[in-house]
């Protein structure tokens, strides 16, 4: 029975990417007499090499000498259960980037820091809560001051 291991999942993901990029490369302007290799040649060369290596990885994963790996999906589910903070932090960061043009850098950053600290340490002690609160206020303001006034770079 086929078991989706890390190596197989990676190889299949790479092959899917290669196929997608190859299809996209069909829209690239074809070679001309003064550009004999054309603009699609180099990416297709890379896609060919990467695709070949991914096929080798996939084949190797079925050989008896392949490193022993467990099924990926149950391992992934178990990982998310034991480490829910990791995917949650990704989501909070995505929300932070989405909010930046709406609320501006300062409010979005303060919001991101509050949510992240709540998520990661849960303000578990008075000391951690105090440090977190200081950072929530100080970090955005210091960064804003340095970029806007010293480096002359405007933030959203």
């Amino acid at each position: 029975m086929f078991t989706l291991t890390k190596d197989r999942a990676f190889a299949l993901a790479v092959l899917a990417l290669v196929a997608t990029m190859y299809v996209a490369s069909l829209d690239i302007r074809p070679a001309t007499s003064w550009q004999p290799y054309g603009s699609a040649f180099y990416p297709r060369l890379l896609l060919g090499v990467v695709g070949l290596l991914a096929v080798l990885l996939l084949i190797r994963s079925f050989l008896p000498s392949a490193p022993v790996q467990t099924a990926m999906i149950p391992a992934l589910v178990a990982f998310v259960r034991t480490n829910p903070r990791v995917p949650a932090l990704f989501l909070v960061f995505a929300a932070y980037v989405a909010m930046m043009p709406v609320t501006g850098y300062l409010l979005a950053t303060m919001g991101f820091l509050i949510l992240s600290f709540l998520l990661l340490s849960g303000f578990s002690s008075r000391r951690i809560a105090l440090v977190s609160l200081i950072l929530v206020i100080a970090v955005p303001l210091i960064v804003f001051f340095v970029f806007e006034n010293i480096l002359s770079i405007r933030l959203p």
Binding site: M100, S116, V131, V143, L151, L155
Partner: peptide, 20 residues
Amino acid sequence: RILAPVVLVLCAVGSFALNN
């Protein structure tokens, strides 16, 4: 857990500041 969010903010600001 205190450091990671602060560093992520700096990474985001650094990436933004590259080309605004």
